[in-house]
Structures are given as C-alpha cells and as structure tokens.
Simulated scan of single mutants.
Amino acid sequence: MAKTEQSRQKKLAKKRSKEIAKRKRLAAEKNALRSVAGQIAASMRLPIDRCYAYASLMDDTEDDGAIGAVLVTRPIPDGRVVFACFLVDKACLGVKDAFARLVTPAQFSDHLDRLRSRSKLIKCDPSVAKKLVTDAVQWAAQFGLDPLGDYERTSRIWHDVDESQCEQTFRFGRNGKPCYIQGPHDSPQFIRRVMESLSQHAGEGNYESTHQIGAPEGIEALFDAEGNPMEQDEMVLPDGDKILRIDHADD
C-alpha cells in the first residue's frame, strides 16, 4: 500500500511539474509578444499572408523619386498578424521609416480599406516588395545614408524571402542623382547630416536638394528636433495619405 501511494505521489509531482513548465512556457511566449523581435519570431512559423505596395513605387515610367509604403503581414498561431510597414523614399533616403505592430486581421483590413480609399495600392509578390526595399537601402547606402526607423528588426519579417527571384529593376533618385527633399519640419541637425553625407559620398554637383512645400502634416513630421524618427500614431505621406502605427491588439 505504501508503494502504491508513493507511486501515486510521484505521478502527481510529475504532472504538477509539467503544468508548471507549461504555464512558464505560455507566460514566456506571451511576454515575448510584447517586443517586435518576439512578434516577428512568432510569425516565422507561418508564411507571409499579404503584401502590398503603393503603385507609385512600382511605376518607373517617370524618374520622380516616389515616396510610398510597402506593407507586409504574417500571421502568428493565435490568429493575430504581425503588420510591418516600410516607408520607401526612392528620391534619396532609401527607407525613411520602418515599424512592426501586432494586430488583429480586422484591424489590418480596416486600415487597408482606409488607405485604398485615398491611394492606389497594388498586391505584389513578397520577393518584389523585398527587392524594392533592399535596393532602396543599398542605393542610399552608397551616399552614407542608413535606413531610418526600426528597420533592422522589422526587416526580419521576410528573412526567408529570396528577392533574387524578382527580375524587376527599380530606378532611384531624380535624373539619376539623389535628391533630398527637405521638409519644413526636418531639423537643422538632420538636414545638415544628410547634406554633409551627400557632399562627402556623391560629390558637389552630383546631388540635388529641394524643399517640400506643404502643411505640417507632411512626411517630415516623422522626425523630432534632433532628426530622429519619432514614435507616433501615424505617418503622413506628401499627398496626405496616412499610414497608421496601429496599436497592439489586446492580449
């Protein structure tokens, strides 16, 4: 009888140990989803769901250095999706902002509908979108300009996408030269850093600079007084479009 009771206690202890380990694992997974790195890591279990880009970014019939967004979603096992946004500046800066958020599919769909009501969005293959973004980053890098925003962590959302599968080529700059579009809210420090970098890497006469005329709602509002990307609820494009930094979905 004693041996039977001892065996039962061992089984109960083993069961409790498994339950405790499970609770710890679930708590760790939930805690990990509070960070961008954790969210993207969780999304790696499933393939990319949706990928869109502003049509102006894909249209190279005019050498105008378009600015627009690339949107990517990847689901996680609990039904939510990681929504990544890359704000591409084909004129000069490459990637002007990048961020990722964990949202519900309904939140992303609502956001997508709002964007479609204002601008032309096109579905594109992830390899095409990634090539556009990475080419923009590489093009800006030759002028000493690094991608802004949370680019390094956000770009992990398509770590398994092979952009070499895309045969499309993209043009950058204006008339083949980088053209820094200064917004009315770009700080003197940020402007100076960009202009000095262009002067050093492109050389005098090999780049252009122009002022963006518009309301304070322009894309320049992404930067603070020090020229750093600001944490805010939305990005506003030059044509008035807004890319919402959607809040995290409820846990």
Rank of each mutant, 00 (worst) to 15 (best):
G227L: 00
Q6I: 13
I243D: 03
R171V: 11
A140V: 06
Q200N: 13
A221D: 14
R45C: 07
K90S: 11
E152F: 01
F223K: 00
I67P: 00
I48N: 06
Q182A: 09
S127T: 08
F190K: 01
R50Y: 03
G68E: 08
S17G: 09
L244H: 15
C51K: 03
D78K: 03
L26Q: 15
E152K: 08
R34Q: 15
R80G: 08
Q138H: 10
D247F: 02
M44N: 12
R171A: 07
I20N: 11
A140T: 10
K90C: 13
N206A: 12
P238T: 10
K15Y: 09
M1D: 13
G218H: 15
D110I: 02
F99H: 07
F143D: 04
F86S: 03
A13Y: 02
D97R: 08
C51T: 15
G65E: 02
D63S: 07
D59H: 06
D162E: 08
A37R: 14
V133G: 00
S199C: 02
Q142M: 05
A91N: 11
D78Y: 06
G176D: 05
L87R: 03
F143S: 08
L132T: 01
E226K: 13
F190V: 01
I213L: 13
L115G: 10
L33P: 02
Y54T: 12
D97S: 13
V103W: 06
A53R: 04
V194R: 02
A129W: 01
G227S: 02
G79A: 08
K242Y: 04
V133Y: 03
Q168A: 05
D239V: 01
I191W: 03
T104K: 04
L244P: 14
D97E: 14
W139I: 01
S43Y: 02
E220A: 09
H159Q: 14
V137N: 02
I122L: 12
A66V: 07
S127R: 12
L237Y: 04
E167N: 14
L198D: 05
A136M: 04
S155H: 06
I219Q: 03
A98I: 01
N31Q: 14
G149Y: 01
E62F: 12
H159R: 11
S117T: 11
L26R: 12
S117M: 05
A215Q: 13
V161Q: 06
G79M: 10
V81I: 15
Y207V: 09
I157P: 06
C166T: 03
K11A: 15
A141M: 13
M235K: 11
D247M: 00
A215S: 15
D250G: 06
T169Q: 11
P229Q: 11
Y54N: 14
S117Q: 10
M235V: 15
R80V: 05
D250W: 07
V88M: 01
C92A: 11
S35K: 05
F172P: 06
C166D: 08
V137W: 00
F190S: 02
K14A: 15
L121W: 00
L87S: 10
Q9G: 03
A141W: 12
F143K: 03
P126W: 02
R50K: 08
